[in-house]
Amino acid sequence: MRKIASEIRRGVNNHMVIFAALLSAGLASGCATPYAYTFHLTDPGVQSASGGDRLENDDVDAQLWVDARGAQAVVLSLRNKTGQPLQVRWSDVVLIAPGGASSAPRPDADLGWIEPDGTQTARLIPFVLPDRGDAAAAYEGKTFELQVPMLVRRTLVIARYHLAAHVEKAR
């Protein structure tokens, strides 16, 4: 009889442990605070524009914005200011996350070179970020570096764009 009572107690305790684990897991994930991201370029000479931050030099006029929640892409629009085709090596684009991990986002559609005075827009995927909890909040103020190799006037140039994240609680 005593043994049966002990088993019942143990069963109840086990259920409480499971409940507590589920509760804490719920708090850690489903119930954690949702966050939203905004990004801005931090490179010298950057200008704010309606379609995203803009950075221009003698060869290329670049505009960037991040679609962190929808298509989960970095959208990069490039205008070729040179008199020759400008070829971006889209297969070699590198994104370096704040912790130093690198990934290789690619355009979601195949692209050719950019004719003189032409503009090309690439949606680089994946660009995935945690959307809630401490994992998301930890990105506040952190910077991503997007390295875009391109042949400009037949010379390989690596354009580096630095995107700082601003994280705030989603409304």
Binding site: A101, A104, P105, R106, V128, L129, D131
Partner: peptide
């Protein structure tokens, strides 16, 4: 978790390529 886990998305991208 694909849309919220950066490392998962990176691994999928690697396998994909």
């Amino acid at each position: 978790d694909l849309s919220t886990d950066p490392s998962l998305a990176d691994r999928l991208n690697t396998l994909h390529r």
